[in-house]
Design a protein around this nucleic acid. Structure first.
Length: 693
RNA sequence: GCCACCGUAGCUCAGCUGGUAGAGCACACCCUUGGUAAGGGUGAGGUCACGGGUUCGAGUCCCGUCGGUGGCUCCA
């Protein structure tokens, strides 16, 4: 006779098994009406699950008491909506086979096998949605029934659904002893799907949904396996939430760095240059240069030494490092001398053989470097090192080239030529912890300055069961511990992921959330026991014997491309003054004031402030509008009265009013302070604090 | 790489089922000399991504190439 403990600690006693739906109804009619499912002892289940024994139960509703959305409710809604969508698609398209349809972070999808004579297209969405709406209106119950494994498999075999049989097999391999099916309505009559569940009580509970997009996928994510069609959708408990979601999507589109990049002329791509190869236009180059200077300043403070290395290197270098041919399909093909090929051809080497030998790297040539480490290693090796020299910290904004798959390329986030904020630390085993900590301190300074406070750290540890790792297990343990301790010094969330280490050492990755909550993977810090070995690097220890240094690779911001891309979206193109490509625009009221405007400009240029003047013939309103579109931090409106007072009328980005007049020298000084302090003191905080909205 | 979608002026886009190219912004010039989020006029600007095909005729239909966008498991 179940005693059911509710979340508030109260207990309900029943003299017979009771469904969660009944329980909800007994607690209150409003709860019953809102209920989508139940957590029994923490496990999410259908609302009509029979509770037979004493249990902790909590009814799942779209929002909890505090009004926060319940992730379990979202899960139920979306998983259920995936079924409704699949039913709609199958009804419209006989011959479509179901594969797999889970809820995901941003909605749900259903993978389908669609006969290729007639693929699905976005034009079909309207009809699919219409059909789904009908299913929702019918408010059919989600009905679960179960079968023993054997019977269930027979049923699936009889239905001839290869993918569902596979799903069942996997479930069985996971230890399932029964298979469950969900019918949208009445068993034997309505649409059904092999499914683990749970689901909402009935289709009518999906208050708002939308079919979002179409993509292709592979069965089990395996490119050699069947091609599937993936249809994405989203569902919410209320139309309001759907509207909010779509508003967020629109906002993201507005912030999209590719869009802003073109609008603000920050960077460009050109077909003739090649996909994934960034052209940094003057405005974007300013942002990158300012960031690099900022980072460089901190590096020098930490005892790094800046170096420069070539963009290419001999194939043999990368064979020694192990990058070739291991990462061959991620690299641009080697640069090989035509004479060499010709002479081989004269010796009777066939084209096929030539191609093969090229692939294998058997023909001498040069490689566009996919990584900077081999070059840095060679700088280390260019002289003898004593233990007294260590750590040696070599840093370079090093440009590398990688042959990303064509489908992976996009904007600044995934490119084929990128510049890493790279450095390699050569140190002793004992120095690892301090070096890691210093790396993280650097990250903290830079993130804090940029207002990037929402980030987490992921530590990749070795999988003790695997053999693929190089280096001594004891060393690994120590290095992993050092990563942990260093990560902890940041005061942010740290996730440990066994098996995610590189084969040559543990690593720390940085994941950052921008202001609209999207997560970006930036850079990484990796401990490496392998490369010093491969290049036979040494230092002389206090014992006068050669020792092997340990390397730390670190590019905490990843690449300048991705970092700037992330920042564009983070700031929505409105960069802080020190980063802004154009910091000030001087706007003369009329031609009568262009002379004075020019002298204002000269004053600002003297201070190396990036300022321009709009001396067009349009009215001041129009000039302000245009400057605002360019997201310029400060506008200085100048007319006869300003000239009289050697002053400027200040207008700041985001504040839709004239802040007032400021003496020109005072403005120049104040904005200089804003720039050099990287925004700690601003023109507004110093002069117009009261006017701030 | 694979699948769907997209590619028209520098940018954002319109162009009905095939009949020979259009707007706004930006740009140039002219009028206006205007004090805080777009004054007015005139003009220049296109091999409709590229190549082929179907057709009397292709921006539009078909095939291919190039480029872009969304995606390619978070275990039924």
């Amino acid at each position: 006779m179940p005693r059911i403990t509710l979340p508030d600690g109260s207990v309900r006693q029943y003299d017979r098994p009771v469904t969660a739906a009944r329980l909800a109804a007994d607690i209150g009619p409003r709860l019953a009406a809102a209920a989508l499912g139940v957590r029994i002892n923490g496990e999410l289940r259908d609302l009509n699950t029979l509770i037979q024994e004493d249990a902790q139960a909590s009814i799942v509703t779209p929002t909890d008491r505090s009004g926060a959305t319940d992730p379990d409710a979202v899960y139920l809604l979306r998983h259920s909506c995936a079924h409704i969508m699949a039913e709609a698609i199958q009804a419209l398209r006989p011959g479509v086979q179901l594969v797999y349809g889970p809820p995901v972070d941003n909605g749900f999808f259903y993978d389908l096998s669609v006969p290729h004579e007639r693929p699905l297209s976005t034009d079909d969405f309207e009809e699919i949605e219409k059909r789904m709406a009908a299913i929702v209106t019918q408010d059919r119950p989600f009905t679960r029934y179960e079968m023993p494994v054997k019977e269930g498999l027979e049923k699936l075999r009889a239905e001839g659904s290869k993918y569902k049989i596979d799903n069942a097999d996997r479930a069985i391999a996971q230890g399932a002893d029964r298979l469950s099916f969900y019918v949208t309505g009445e068993p034997g009559k309505d649409w059904e799907d092999l499914c683990r569940g749970p689901h909402v009580p009935s289709t009518g509970r999906i208050a708002a949904f939308k079919v979002m997009s179409l993509a292709s996928s592979f069965w089990h994510g395996d490119a050699t396996s069947d091609r599937l069609t993936r249809v994405y959708g989203i569902a919410f408990a209320t139309p309001k939430e759907l509207a909010e979601h779509r508003r967020m999507l629109a906002e993201s589109r507005k912030r999209d760095h590719r869009r802003l990049g073109r609008q603000l002329e920050l960077f460009a791509f050109d077909e003739d240059v090649g996909p994934g190869l960034v052209l940094w236009t003057p405005a974007g180059a300013v942002i990158r240069r300012e960031l690099e200077e900022f980072i460089r300043g901190e590096l020098l403070r930490q005892g790094y030494q800046m170096v420069y290395t070539p963009h290419i290197g001999k194939l043999s270098l990368f064979k020694t490092s192990g990058h070739y041919p291991y990462y061959r399909d991620k690299q641009y093909p080697p640069i090989v001398d035509a004479d060499q090929i010709q002479s081989l051809a004269r010796q009777g080497v066939s084209c096929a053989e030539l191609a093969d030998r090229l692939q294998q790297g058997d023909i001498d040539g040069y490689l566009l470097k996919p990584m900077n480490c081999p070059h840095h290693v060679k700088i280390y090796a260019s002289r003898h090192h004593s233990y007294r020299d260590l750590p040696v910290r070599l840093a370079e904004f090093g440009t590398v080239y990688r042959w990303e798959q064509s489908g992976e390329i996009g904007g600044l986030t995934r490119v084929r030529g990128l510049t890493q904020d790279d450095a390699h630390l050569f140190c002793t085993e004992d120095q690892i912890p301090a070096e890691l900590k210093a790396c993280l301190a650097l990250v903290k300074i830079i993130f804090t300055t940029l207002g990037l406070t929402d980030y987490r750290v992921r530590i990749g540890l070795r999988d003790p069961a695997s053999e693929k790792y190089v280096g001594d297990a004891g060393l690994w343990k120590k290095a992993e511990q050092a990563c942990r301790e260093a990560a902890r010094s940041l005061d942010v969330r740290v996730d440990e992921e066994p098996g995610e280490a590189a084969f040559y050492g543990p690593k720390i990755d940085f994941m950052i959330n921008d202001v609209i909550g999207r997560e970006w993977q930036l850079g990484t810090i990796q401990v490496d026991y392998s490369l010093p070995e491969r290049f036979d690097l040494t230092y002389t220890g206090p014992d006068n014997q050669p020792h092997r240094p340990v390397m730390i690779h670190r590019a905490p911001f990843g690449s300048m491309e991705r970092f700037v891309g992330m920042l564009i979206e983070h700031f929505a193109g409105a960069f802080p003054t020190w980063l802004a490509p154009e910091q000030v625009r001087v706007l003369p009221i009329s031609d009568k004031s262009t002379g004075y405007a020019r002298s204002v400009l000269a004053t600002l240029h003297d201070r190396q402030i990036r300022a321009t003047m709009d001396d067009g013939h349009s009215r001041i309103q129009a000039k302000i509008k245009v400057a605002a579109d360019w997201k310029i931090p400060y506008m200085l409106v100048v007319g006869p009265s300003d000239q009289q007072a050697t002053a400027v009328s200040v207008r700041a980005r985001g504040i839709q009013q004239n802040l007032g007049s400021l003496e020109l020298g005072a403005f120049a000084e104040s904005i200089t302070a804003e720039i050099t302090s990287r925004g700690r003191a601003t023109v507004i905080s110093e002069h117009f604090a009261a006017a701030k909205i």
